[in-house]
Nucleic acid binder design. Structure first.
Length: 290
DNA sequence: GCCCAGGAGAAGG
DNA sequence: CCTTCTCATGGG
């Protein structure tokens, strides 16, 4: 009953790199090596065969591919050209690219990305995933996946805006519960209009709006712009990127502005992608540079 | 027990 | 403007 869509001639693609590089939190690797997850209200399994350069999406339709997955997986972009340019410019980046060659920057739902990265602050990735899953199970809608398992959509801002802080206690969000309630109410107040507009406006407009929301600072705002709006000028600086920029690029550990400036000058116009190669490289190797 | 995590807000200087 | 403190939680 579940359809399998096959997309041929897909290059620079690796599901482990894409779904485990810290940009998304709702994809889980299955026994058959596919990744199961939910995005834009659809539960699918995604797998990739490098030998035949074939992408397979289980439980999807051609219409969903056209409407959702092609943009979500950023399949229209030629990463090969960018990687070639980067590798010629920068030896450190070249090594990071060799390690995470199949990374692609997803174009995720703005609202889900906003809340997910509020949850991410001062938190570990496995626990972030658990918090988000619990949030979806409690306040999202149940949908069917390809494997008969239960999946849940990400809860809408109109639903979360109606909650009180104690309703979120089940999610173990700590002090972040307050941020989520306040931000949900702020977004719900104008029906998500401004959040929607951030995508078509420049980085300054998006940054100003996002950081006006409770629980959104410079780092989270940059993650939202990069992972849900394809604003690749964004260069999120977290503790891992700080370590990279300090120990591998020699920038003062506290000089966040200097790190952003270095990225602008040396990684443009794809600073966000460079950041993701570096993050995945340093983080998944477990290198503690400090 | 201690330290840390894809940080941000508040308080104090 | 800057720096430091505090904020829950669970895994290592």
């Amino acid at each position: 009953m579940s359809k399998v869509l096959e997309i041929k001639n897909v290059k620079d693609f690796n599901t482990d790199h894409i779904f485990a590089c810290g940009q998304c939190f709702r994809w889980e690797k299955q026994n058959d090596n596919s990744f199961a997850g939910v995005a834009f209200g659809k539960a699918v399994n995604i797998s990739y065969d490098a030998n035949t350069e074939t992408l397979r999406i289980l439980n999807s339709t051609q219409k969903d591919y056209d409407d959702i997955w092609e943009d979500y997986l950023d399949l229209k972009r030629d990463y090969g050209e960018i990687k070639k340019e980067f590798s010629g410019r920068d030896k450190i980046l070249k090594e990071a690219i060799d390690y995470g060659q199949g990374i692609r920057i997803l174009k995720q739902d703005k609202w889900e990305t906003l809340i997910s990265f509020i949850i991410s602050q001062n938190n570990h990735i496995p626990r972030i995933k658990k918090c988000i899953e619990t949030l979806c199970e409690n306040f999202g809608q149940e949908i069917a996946g390809a494997d008969g398992k239960k999946y849940f959509t990400f809860p809408s801002y109109s639903v979360l805006a109606e909650l009180e802080e104690e309703d979120l206690a089940v999610c173990k969000l700590g002090y972040r519960s307050k941020y989520i309630i306040e931000t949900s109410r702020a977004v719900n107040a104008d029906g998500g209009k401004k959040l929607q507009e951030t995508e078509v406006n420049d980085v300054n407009f998006a940054y100003e709006y996002l950081t006006s929301l409770c629980g959104v600072g410079p780092k989270v705002a940059n993650c939202i712009m990069l992972f849900s709006m394809a604003k690749w000028e964004a260069f999120p600086v977290d503790v891992w990127v700080r370590r990279v920029m300090h120990h591998l690029y020699g920038i003062d550990e506290k000089d966040m502005a200097g790190m952003a400036e270095y990225a602008r000058q040396n990684f443009a116009p794809w600073a966000g992608l460079a950041q993701q190669y570096l993050f995945y490289y340093i983080q998944s190797k477990g290198i503690k540079l400090k």
